[in-house]
Design a protein around this nucleic acid. Structure first.
Length: 199
DNA sequence: ATGACGATTTACT
DNA sequence: GTAAATCGTCATA
């Protein structure tokens, strides 16, 4: 499937994470971005670049591509294409629905004390935040979401196409003519979305 | 071996 | 709004 189609279909579905201790965490996907592979200047695989880091983008659709960035955050993608076609969808925000207490704890590590308690809308509103919230790290890179006992996708809330906002992607200022391509989708009015488009 | 740079988040002014 | 935090990765040498 192409990444733009998958990005829209993932909105409303539920990302589920089962921790080793049996805790079940989950959130409804409310914001996604499509990365179109070798032709997309914003994608890690632009021009066919293939390295140990982005290797799982070349895997079959349904694989997780988890990478580390800015020296401190993870981001998670769902690979969209056939094996060898490195297109994927970045998950940018979830509306947390299961395991809120555990999620809050994961988002408040002891080495990073908080001045004020986190509001619900700040728990999973960003690609780095949602990975921290669901304990998604290196060990889940390359995970097959269609068979994994640790992380998978379930049906969730159904949103009509007209409830989705289609706009530009975030954090890709160096991508030249791809900067303005509308390849980000989010649920209109949902408070857990990371960055809203200008009205 | 080295250096520049992130598909970001947080706190502070 | 601005800036700091923080380090794995990759291209260059």
């Amino acid at each position: 499937m192409d990444a733009a189609t998958l990005a829209q279909r993932l909105i409303g579905q539920r990302l589920v994470r089962l921790l080793d201790d049996g805790t079940r965490l989950a959130g409804t996907i409310v914001e996604t971005e499509a990365y179109l592979g070798v032709k997309d200047k914003a994608a890690h695989t632009f021009g066919g670049r293939r390295t140990p880091r982005n290797e799982s983008m070349y895997a079959i659709g349904g694989t997780a591509y988890v990478y580390f960035t800015y020296g401190m955050h993870f981001c998670m993608n769902v690979v969209a294409g056939q094996a060898g076609d490195p297109v994927a969808v970045l998950l940018r925000a979830l509306e947390p629905v299961e395991g809120l207490d555990a999620i809050r704890a994961l988002r408040t590590p002891h080495h990073r004390p908080r001045k004020t308690p986190l509001k619900d809308k700040d728990l999973c509103s960003g690609p780095g935040r949602l990975c921290e919230a669901l304990a998604i790290g290196r060990d889940l890179n390359g995970e097959d979401l269609t068979t994994s006992p640790r992380m998978w996708i379930e049906p969730g809330t159904t949103y009509a196409p007209r409830q989705l906002v289609k706009t530009t992607r975030i954090g890709i200022s160096g991508a030249e003519e791809w900067v303005d391509r509308p390849l980000r989708w989010y649920v209109n009015g949902n408070t857990h979305v990371s960055v809203k488009a200008k009205p």
